[in-house]
Computed example of a mutant assay.
Amino acid sequence: MALREYAKYGGITAAIFAVFVVLAQAQAISVPFFTPATIRVNGLGDNYGLNGDATFTITAHGYGSNCHALQVEAVHDGERKSFYRKADDCRYMEITHGPYNFTRSFEYGSEVLSSKGEYKLDVRFEDLVDGRKASLTRNFSVGTE
């Protein structure tokens, strides 16, 4: 084969592989090592009334093991207003791999939304077997409508 044909087939192969990686990164397909963990927060508003109620869900999507940890912390002026952490004990689980869709609901009431000002919600998710991590921060206000 001529060098030109090798270059042509190499380019086609690279293009196919690039499309494969892009689809995995976009989570259109689930592929080990190429599908990252992503986090979404649904239902969290931008503003809440003082001593109001906030209901939202956190969803992690990705590909990996069935052993996870989720940490959610709400902070106001450097003071922790709410903290949640749950980590699976992988020693007592049969570890499997595949796509996951992990969802947890949260309800904040007057015990959390009791101070006026800006709040920061920090979310961290980790696959405890494969080591994949994802995090995000969302901000919202209380009593500043």
Rank of each mutant, 00 (worst) to 15 (best):
I16K: 06
V21N: 13
R80C: 02
G62S: 06
D127L: 09
Y119A: 04
I29S: 04
V19L: 15
S105L: 13
S82L: 15
I12L: 14
N47G: 01
C67A: 13
F33E: 15
Y9K: 09
L70V: 05
R85F: 11
H97M: 09
T38S: 09
Q71I: 05
T13Q: 14
L70P: 00
Y84D: 06
L70R: 00
G43T: 04
R91A: 09
L113I: 08
R4I: 10
Y6E: 03
K120I: 08
N66W: 10
I29N: 04
E94G: 05
A7S: 08
P36Y: 08
P99N: 04
E118N: 10
D88S: 11
N101E: 12
E107T: 14
E5T: 06
N47F: 13
G117N: 02
T55Y: 05
V123E: 01
D122L: 06
A87V: 04
T55D: 05
A14T: 11
T96A: 10
L23G: 00
Y84Q: 11
S82Y: 15
F34H: 07
R80D: 07
E73N: 01
N47Q: 14
P32C: 04
R80H: 01
N47Y: 14
P32Y: 08
E126T: 05
E73V: 13
A26L: 11
A54R: 03
L44R: 07
T103G: 01
E73I: 14
D53H: 04
Q25P: 00
Y48H: 04
P32W: 09
K81V: 01
S82N: 10
H68Q: 14
T55C: 01
G10I: 07
L121G: 00
R40S: 13
Y92D: 09
Q27H: 13
D77M: 07
F20G: 03
Y119R: 02
H76R: 09
A15E: 13
I29R: 04
A15W: 08
V75G: 00
E5C: 01
F56D: 00
G117Y: 08
I16P: 00
N101L: 13
V31K: 03
Y9R: 08
V41C: 02
S110G: 06
L50E: 15
G49K: 15
Y48F: 14
F17I: 07
L50K: 11
C90A: 12
S114V: 09
T57S: 04
Y6M: 03
H61L: 15
S82D: 13
K86S: 10
E79A: 09
G52L: 08
V19D: 14
T38P: 02
S30A: 12
T38H: 08
P32T: 07
G11M: 09
D88M: 02
N51Q: 13
G98L: 12
Y63P: 01
S115Y: 02
E118R: 14
V21Q: 09
K8G: 00
V21G: 03
A69K: 11
R124E: 09
M93P: 00
A14E: 11
V75C: 01
